[in-house]
Simulated assay, not measured.
Amino acid sequence: MLTGSDFPERVETPRLAVRRFVDADAPRVLSILSRLDVIRWLDNPPFVPMADLDAARAWVVRVNAREAEDPLQAWRALEVRETGVMAGTVLVSRMERIDGGFVGEYELGWHLHPDSAGHGYATEGAAAHARSAFAAGHASLVIGMYPDNAPSAAVARRLGAEDLGEVPDDPWYGGVSRHFTLRPEHLDATEVRE
């Protein structure tokens, strides 16, 4: 079992810095999480856009604190090294079941600002963060999404994740979801641009 977080503060790939969030990220967090075209993929309805900069600052504090609460989870900003623009988020998050139970499952997830989509940043950042998660002690990660989230399914496939298909009663979010599982050997067997 981990004591403290074994996730690195910062990992660099050829194009990205996968790093802890800082307060200066709050305006970009607001720009991302106030968009219905982004948040509609992230949780269950009703989808409530982030309200203001204070809410974004509180979000940054909250996601950084999650690591102290459970060192097997970590949320990181994806920063484009060439421009310094925070493109989005990659995360390994504890998965609480709808019934309130927790059986040791963790999710690999990501979301980007639409102006940063289509460049391979989600795949590159998720691969780097998954490698950090496996080095920190995870044996596998769940990747869950709405069944019609084709862009995220494509990222999961590029990572080499095993497609488990549609699950009619998602134990974490309810309803129908599409699930993938990612293990270290999947990344090792896949050519992921980093």
Rank of each mutant, 00 (worst) to 15 (best):
158 R>V: 00
132 S>H: 09
130 A>T: 09
95 M>T: 02
52 D>C: 08
74 A>M: 11
148 D>T: 12
136 A>V: 06
75 W>H: 15
150 A>E: 15
58 A>W: 11
86 M>P: 07
71 P>T: 01
41 W>R: 05
98 I>K: 13
142 V>K: 08
34 S>C: 08
105 E>S: 10
81 R>H: 10
153 A>P: 07
144 G>E: 13
75 W>R: 10
66 R>M: 15
145 M>P: 01
36 L>T: 10
55 A>S: 08
43 D>R: 15
48 V>A: 13
132 S>D: 13
138 H>S: 02
82 E>S: 10
123 T>E: 03
37 D>P: 02
36 L>Q: 14
152 S>Q: 04
138 H>N: 00
157 R>W: 05
111 H>P: 10
46 P>A: 09
44 N>E: 15
115 D>G: 11
85 V>S: 04
117 A>I: 01
83 T>V: 08
119 H>L: 10
69 E>K: 11
41 W>D: 04
67 E>H: 11
80 V>H: 10
114 P>V: 06
138 H>G: 01
64 N>Q: 13
101 G>L: 02
152 S>T: 06
144 G>T: 14
142 V>L: 15
146 Y>P: 03
137 G>D: 04
141 L>P: 04
106 Y>M: 02
81 R>Y: 11
88 G>V: 03
153 A>L: 08
71 P>I: 07
93 S>G: 15
